[in-house]
Design a protein around this nucleic acid. Structure first.
Length: 271
DNA sequence: AGAGGTACCTGGCAGC
DNA sequence: TGCTGCCAGGTACCTC
């Protein structure tokens, strides 16, 4: 489900309500997520104060003085703040009960998400340590992107979804960014000229930024930290629109599976 | 090193 | 109504 805009939307929604709060209790109802939820979380967090809620790639980092929670939403996860006494849903596997009477709950039907603990710097955690630059930072730029793609024969769609190159671009925004840049998803990454790399870098930044401003994309079940859907779905140009006419030319949008993932593009204006 | 496939899980939906 | 098969926003890990 969530790509960078959805995770950032979640972060912005919950951070103001979490920062400075103390954790009263942790309840783990289903520890079997992507990796087991650490059994000692409850003891570690009881009474601890949340200092900051940050995001790196699609991971949320909830910082405490003595360590950090690392949360990933996987394909179907969402975090939501609600009252303690609000009934817990069937897929709300982990909850942090806060001192102010609210609960932060992780809902994740498919359980591809993760809740991990690290005593040290979460950015140095093995899952995060070798990730590429944040797409909305200056560390993600045309010059470096062009250099990194030289000699690469994988598809450009696979390349921009590879977290070692840049983070945060998932299946929806990959199709959208390639459409905006006029680049065919099957093109070899190493075959893009420097100006086209620059156009793609700009398209990725624009699409992600616009999606954040709309609160993310809700296709089926994404909601922000307060249970509200995102509104970027209506701004999608190609994703999920196979058979419709291209917004830019007279072509028809196609759906083709690339690397086991549905890909949408206009074969006429994406080259 | 890089490319490609598999696996993890549940729910919703189309088609019969 | 109920069954089957397919699809889904991610990514670590395996083999070649």
């Amino acid at each position: 489900m969530p790509e960078l805009p959805e995770v950032e939307t979640t972060r912005r929604g919950i951070a103001p309500h979490l920062i400075g709060q103390r954790v009263r209790e942790v309840r783990v109802h289903q520890p079997r997520l992507r990796w087991p939820v650490p059994g000692e979380l409850a003891e570690r967090l009881r009474g601890a104060r949340i200092l900051e809620v940050e995001r790196r790639a699609k991971y949320l980092l909830i910082r405490f003085a003595h360590g950090s929670l690392i949360v990933h939403l996987g394909m179907s996860g969402s975090l939501r703040l609600s009252a303690h006494e609000h009934p817990r849903g069937a897929h709300e596997h982990v909850e942090l009960l806060l001192a102010d009477g609210r609960a932060l709950r992780l809902n994740d039907p498919r359980r591809f998400g993760a809740v991990l603990w690290t005593d040290g710097d979460p950015l140095a955690h093995p899952l995060l340590a070798s990730l590429g630059p944040e797409p909305l930072s200056e560390a993600f730029n045309a010059e470096d992107f062009h250099r990194a793609s030289r000699g690469r024969r994988c598809t450009i769609k696979g390349f921009i979804m590879d977290g070692r190159q840049l983070v945060g671009v998932g299946n929806i925004y990959a199709s959208e960014a390639l459409f905006h840049a006029g680049i065919h998803p099957l093109r070899a990454a190493g075959s893009l000229s420097r100006p086209r790399c620059a156009a793609l870098v700009e398209a990725i930044k624009r699409v992600l930024q616009a999606a954040i401003e709309q609160g993310g994309t809700t296709l089926r079940d994404f909601t922000d930290g307060h249970g509200q859907p995102g509104y970027f779905a209506q701004a999608l140009q190609v994703y999920g629109r196979a058979g419709e006419s291209c917004p830019r030319c007279a072509g028809t949008i196609r759906n083709k599976t690339i690397a086991q993932r549905a890909s949408y593009y206009c074969p006429r204006c994406q080259r």
